[in-house]
Design a protein around this nucleic acid. Structure first.
Length: 942
DNA sequence: CTAACGGCG
DNA sequence: CCTTCGCCGTTAG
């Protein structure tokens, strides 16, 4: 049982030290003697966290040795390509060992064996006794193969507390396998660049998983290559030996001759004097305090001040649920719910919060609904004996579709879940997350944080609810966190929601609804004070359900065309790789800009004075390499390789992974207030950067298709919206005239800048003017323009001067905007959306200029964002009110994309165009203009 | 984790 | 010395 099980922690010393070093590579910690102590510090943090919070009974740290290992015998190149260990890091390892000695923690080393093998062997032995719960503490994914019901992987997170625990179900789901031993098969195909394990060429993580899912093991795959086709077949067949060799290399030993016994690993008392002395030497004063409180006297040098800096933490006491008399009640019968709904229907303002089993709205199941319309009073509605989940929703439906304002936190999630269950909640909505994003965009917006910072209140943590509930800690990927948070936070404290008893969840859920209700009132006030009520109530709030619908609809992608493009690209990548290796005279990792730079500029000496990045690496970006293309054939090949591999990895391989199995569509996530300017952002997958500029890229765009026979893709995009906005908010008459006469703005600008008639403007003149027009929006310098146009700087400066002479109000607008920003510290868009520019008065000229450019750009980009958001609200309204079958399915900054029903097109197109053009009337009667396109795929729709 | 790169508007 | 805004995803180290 849990209380008698021995808890064995096996730490992968080298890997943890390595990781700690690189985690702090940008902000290394030095002691007063100039020693980089990042790695030691990071390692100690992890160790102390385990000792303090995770009750180990046995603990040991394994290290590699310098001796060659059996892996080197069968494969001399094993780990041959590793860069030499940084000096700082090399020095850290003996320090870590000294500390471990002081802690009386065994360092386990075995000449000729790696730390992996030691850990594998000990974990295996521990499993055999049946007495241990073993934790392999390592950041290295390879250890997944060793996970068993009694041995889990423990991956330290960024902060000490954020830990990723991987047990068998977690490994199986993460690796998409049926048995943990198949991790080895996947790694064998995939290979490992850092250990120089070859794998099979052309097979990466995804293909490896797919093949092992299909065939079960490397051996079975090799027997059945007749079932493969094309390039993949060839690759596998030609690399059978290599695959089997790789399999040997990635297999961690479980029978190494380790002499350490479990008795050696029993946790022992540390040598306090030795620890104190080492901490003092390393100047780990905070860690010293942590162990010894004020008994720890900081060492010499500057660090003596540390004890003065850290008195007992004086911290405002946070209130908790226990400090209030609350009225939180569980509602689980039809009669009770009927009574509750009667009350609810009288409210014109209430808060609701769904508790679900998962974070994907399309797969999430409803556990309950928390409701609150009065501070410290809330109800948690759950299914009961005479109340099925669907009946529960049915009874709540009138309230959720009423005219009352619905408050919630991250309502996009709740509304998506409801929509997936066929319930379209109606506004107005008040989303506290959105409100806070407008009021205080720099801060985090999760509810726990808002409760602490705005109400001085600390909320119940889901993990505690689960613990109290004595539910077995589960690592299922189900939790309540929002999508946005999911990716950014380490998977911690995964909670199997359905294992929590309703009674336990009640306080948690009610508290959320209660707190959110209270936050809304404060935030409404703050919106008002910051002048952003209009943008909140007129734009962001009504946009919210529109985004929910767009995400819900999704977009169709033709999987087969992507597969075909993938084959073509793979072939091209392979041929180019061959040529490049030949031209370079050696093989290297083409995906590494570092290695590529060293080849081109270090070895091949392509130019005398190569450009460098700010970190001192050779620059190898497209604009740098393009200039070098004439010098050597290799450059063109590299550029082509870059293009092909970008397209393959980012689009062709990734998009199919996002196709939803139940409806065959891709449902992107649209983030409403993530950007500084008010634009939307798209992720998982990002559908706002689907290729269009290059020929090869456009093939990918063709794979986006209508949802059915009777539909077509229809795109409606604003023409030159940002320049129109700039003309309008600057009030520049010349530019306004150009738009009012519907002139081509770049031609009109060229005519003015070059002093010729519109009909005398050449292609080159127009293209230069176009560059200047866009450059101006971004605050370009003469230098920047000269680079882009490939002209001398003086000439560029002249063009810019003439531009401002011709459009004087634009110059004025730019100066005034910066002046305003300097004075107020922020700029605004036409709708009142605010962006704070902290750096606008920086003493550092470069930083200050950057902020200045953002100051100019924000009102322009942000107002354009306001406009299309308003258009989306309008268009959504007209589609729904008119009962059309056509659906809005995407926004790409200045474009709206629709699945248009063929029978509706003649009627709808003019209405959509009209809605877009009139969504936000610009000052000075500058007209907005929308162009349209239609076709059987997204490319044709333009 | 950050940097470099490159896809889009 | 730096030098064009706003994003997201992939890869390497």
């Amino acid at each position: 049982m849990a209380d008698t099980t021995k808890r064995l922690f096996l730490l992968d010393g080298m890997a943890l030290v390595y990781r700690a070093h690189f985690a702090l590579i940008r902000n290394p910690i030095y002691n007063s003697k100039g020693m980089n102590t990042s790695a030691v510090f990071g390692f100690m943090n992890t160790l102390l966290d385990i000792l303090d919070n995770h009750s180990p009974t046995h603990l040991g740290v394994a290290f590699d040795t310098k001796e060659p290992t059996p892996r080197h015998e069968i494969f001399p190149e094993y780990k041959a390509q590793r860069d030499a260990m940084p000096e700082d890091l090399a020095k850290a390892i003996p320090e870590v060992k000294r500390l471990l000695k002081a802690f009386h923690i065994p360092v386990i080393e075995l000449p000729g064996y790696e730390a992996d093998d030691i850990i594998g062997t000990l974990a295996h032995q521990a499993d055999a006794t049946g007495e241990y719960q073993t934790f392999m503490v390592t950041p290295d994914k390879d250890f997944a193969q060793l996970v068993t019901p009694t041995t889990t992987m423990w991956k330290p997170g960024r902060k000490g507390s954020e830990v990723e625990l991987m047990d068998v179900p977690a490994i199986l789901s993460k690796w998409e396998i049926e048995d943990t031993s198949q991790v080895i098969d996947i790694l064998a195909l995939w290979g490992d660049a850092s250990d120089n394990i070859p794998g099979v060429p052309g097979i990466g993580e995804k293909t490896a998983k797919k093949l092992i899912k299909q065939f079960g093991s490397v051996e079975k795959l090799l027997e059945s290559t007749d079932q493969l086709k094309g390039k993949q077949k060839e690759n596998v067949e030609n690399n059978k030996e290599q695959a089997l060799l790789s399999k040997k290399l990635v297999t961690i030993m479980v029978d190494a001759p380790v002499s350490t016994t479990f008795k050696d690993l029993v946790l022992d008392q540390r040598d306090d004097e030795a620890v104190k002395s080492l901490f003092t030497e390393l100047e780990f004063n905070a860690l010293g305090k942590r162990l010894y409180g004020n008994d720890f006297t900081a060492g010499r040098g500057h660090s003596t001040t540390a004890s003065a800096e850290q008195p007992e933490l004086v911290q405002a006491e946070l209130k908790t649920l226990a400090d209030f008399k609350t009225n939180y009640a569980l509602v689980n019968s039809a009669a009770e719910l009927d009574k509750l709904v009667k009350q609810l229907e009288k409210q014109d303002l209430f808060c609701f919060d769904l508790e679900t089993t998962a974070l994907n709205p399309r797969t999430a199941d409803l556990l309950g609904v928390a409701l609150s319309w009065k501070a410290r009073e809330a109800y948690f509605v759950i299914p009961g004996k005479d109340l099925s989940p669907s009946a529960m929703l049915e009874k709540l439906k009138p309230a959720l579709t009423s005219k009352a304002t619905k408050i919630g936190h991250n309502l996009k999630f709740d509304l998506s879940v409801l929509l997936a269950k066929g319930l379209q909640a109606t506004g107005p909505f008040f989303d506290t997350m959105l409100a806070h994003s407008l009021v205080d965009p720099e801060q985090r917006h999760n509810m726990d944080y808002l409760a602490e910072s705005m109400l001085g209140y600390t909320t119940i943590k889901l993990a505690d609810v689960a613990a109290e509930n004595e539910a077995e800690a589960s690592t299922q990927s189900d939790d309540l966190f929002s999508f946005a948070e999911k990716k950014k936070t380490t998977k911690k404290d995964y909670v199997d929601m359905s294992a929590i008893r309703a009674e336990s969840l009640k306080d948690y859920a009610c508290e959320d609804a209660d707190i959110t209700f209270q936050l809304a009132e404060i935030l409404a006030e703050q919106l008002d004070t910051s002048g952003q009520s209009d943008v909140f109530y007129d734009i962001e709030s009504p946009l919210l359900p529109v985004l929910v619908r767009i995400e819900h609809e999704g977009i169709c992608v033709n999987r087969d065309s992507l597969t075909e493009i993938g084959h073509t690209l793979a072939k091209r990548i392979e041929n180019l790789t061959k040529s490049i290796y030949e031209q370079a005279g050696k093989e290297f990792n083409l995906n590494s800009p570092k290695q590529l730079g060293e080849i081109l500029f270090g070895e091949m000496q392509l130019v005398e004075k190569p450009k460098k990045t700010k970190t001192g690496q050779f620059k190898t970006d497209e604009s740098t390499l393009s200039l070098l293309a004439p010098k050597h054939e290799i450059v063109a090949n590299i550029l082509e390789y870059r293009e092909a591999s970008k397209l393959k990895s980012t689009y062709v391989d990734a998009l199919p992974e996002h196709i939803c199995p139940s409806d065959g569509r891709i449902h992107t996530h649209l983030h409403q207030l993530l950007t500084a300017t008010g634009r939307l952002a798209s992720s998982d997958p990002n559908l706002q950067n689907i290729p269009v500029r290059s020929e090869a890229g456009r093939e990918i765009r063709k794979a986006f298709v209508p949802r059915g026979e009777e539909f077509t893709l229809f795109a409606c995009d604003y023409s030159q919206v940002e320049l129109r906005v700039m003309a309008a908010i600057s009030g520049d008459q010349a530019m306004i005239d150009a738009f009012q006469h519907d002139h081509d703005i770049h031609t009109a600008t060229a005519a003015r800048v070059y002093g010729v008639g519109m009909d005398e403007v050449t292609r080159d003149m127009r293209s230069t003017a176009k560059m200047v027009n866009f450059g101006i929006i971004y605050g370009i310098s003469a230098f920047g323009l000269s680079q882009r146009l490939g002209i001398p700087r003086g000439e560029a400066a002249e063009i810019i001067d003439t531009y401002f002479e011709q459009y004087p109000a634009i110059k004025e607008f730019m100066d005034k905007t910066i002046e305003q920003a300097e004075k107020d510290g922020y700029v605004t868009t036409l709708s009142g959306r605010k962006r704070v520019l902290r750096d606008i008065n920086s003493r550092n000229a470069s930083i200050r200029k950057n902020a200045g450019r953002a100051a100019i750009n924000t009102p322009i980009q942000g107002t354009a964002a306001d406009m299309i958001k308003l258009a989306m609200i309008k268009v959504d309204d007209l589609l729904r009110k008119g009962g059309y079958h056509s659906k809005m399915i995407l926004q790409v900054h200045d474009e709206l994309l629709f699945d248009l029903h063929l029978e509706e097109k003649d009627e709808l197109i003019p209405k959509i165009v009209e809605a877009m053009q009139t969504a936000l009337p610009l000052p000075h009667d500058v007209p907005a203009k929308a162009d349209t396109g239609m076709g059987g795929n997204w490319l044709q729709a333009h």
